[in-house]
């Protein structure tokens, strides 16, 4: 299964939107936070987990999803949200904590919810796995089409919730795909120091489901394997586990000095930055000429700037909004 020309360009476009978005957030996040770094200050307070470098995972998987499919995402959700079609302006406003945000400022960047495209998050490690199973069960019981994708990090595979959900999905043959983004680091602890097996795809065998490992953050390989898994799920054949080697080009969160990363590791990853390499491949394969890609990049930047401006221009919610939406209206 190879991406069509349109799919390739869609993937590239969404990778670039995601990267420009993260670069913009990164810059604004530091406003008001210097000379002394205080997380509570500036237009974007709180923790900030950027996904620079992990874009291929999001686009390679979400290229196969429609807005009716379900994604449960993590504390590092921007790339996944963008690829799933979450409203960019409302997401930016949510990250700023504005009343025009997806959740009116109640959630912030770790809790991105957009029911229009069936996108939900949990800031707690591996806790999106169960809800993905439930959404998949819901579709199965209602005889409605739909696949649920649970994204998680490689550090999440040692959580019970992951294993419980894998078992449930398998024993009930649910249309779920578990996608592990292996960025090699659980905050500061390396995969080798935390996980008993070098590759987590082998864990699929314990639950009688197919497991795949994809090396080197390759959007084309991700597209292919994810496509097979999602097709399998749609056909009623049950869940799949995919682990994808990807690159964390930023710290765990902003402000992370990353002293734990070996010298040269990040430089080597930047050398393999998936966005320039995909651009090269698109050109080499004749999918687009340089002008075409330049336009995609310019449009992506414009979309991001519009979303950020919308967020900046929006008002904060009245204080008392904190007391509403605890229960369903």
């Amino acid at each position: 299964m190879s991406p069509t020309k349109e799919q390739q360009l869609w993937m590239y476009e969404n990778m670039v939107v995601s990267r420009r978005f993260e670069e913009s957030i990164e810059k604004i996040y530091m406003e008001g936070k210097s000379p002394a770094f205080n997380m509570a200050n500036g237009p974007i307070p709180g923790e900030m987990h950027l996904s620079n470098g992990q874009e291929p995972v999001a686009v390679g998987v979400c290229a196969h999803l429609t807005k009716d499919d379900i994604v449960t995402a993590t504390h590092r959700p921007h790339h996944q949200a963008i690829a799933k079609g979450v409203d960019l302006k409302k997401m930016a406003a949510e990250i700023f904590g504005k009343v025009t945000g997806l959740s009116g400022g109640r959630g912030g960047h770790m809790h991105i919810f957009d029911s229009n495209v069936n996108f939900a998050c949990s800031g707690i490690i591996a806790q999106g796995c169960g809800p993905a199973c439930g959404a998949a069960l819901s579709r199965k019981m209602q005889n409605k089409p739909g696949v649920a994708v649970a994204f998680l990090g490689e550090g999440a595979v040692n959580q019970g919730a992951f294993h419980e959900a894998m078992n449930l999905a398998a024993v009930w043959k649910l249309p779920v795909v578990f996608v592990v983004e292996d960025n090699a680091w659980g905050i500061s602890v390396s995969k080798a120091d935390s996980t008993a097996v070098p590759r987590n795809d082998v864990r699929a065998a314990a639950y009688g489901m197919p497991g795949h490992f994809i090396e080197n953050n390759d959007p084309y390989a991700i597209f292919e394997i994810a496509g097979q898994a999602i097709e399998r799920a749609r056909a009623g054949e049950g869940p799949t586990l995919i682990e994808i080697e990807t690159f964390r080009l930023a710290g765990h969160f902003m402000g992370d000095a990353e002293g734990y990363r070996p010298e040269g590791e990040k430089d080597a990853l930047f050398e393999k930055d998936p966005i320039p390499s995909m651009r090269e491949r698109l050109l080499a394969d004749g999918v687009s000429d340089a002008a075409g890609l330049d336009k995609i990049e310019a449009d992506a930047l414009a979309r991001v700037e519009e979303a950020i401006q919308f967020a900046r221009d929006s008002e904060y919610a009245p204080d008392e909004d904190a007391l509403t939406s605890v229960f369903a209206a």
Partner: peptide, 23 residues
């Protein structure tokens, strides 16, 4: 009937409820 797996089936209920079921 579920496996003895409360995290899985209670969080699955959350996902099902958000998807239109009433578990």
């Amino acid at each position: 009937d579920t496996p003895i797996s409360e995290t899985a089936f209670i969080s699955a209920a959350v996902g099902a409820a958000m998807d239109g079921m009433r578990p």
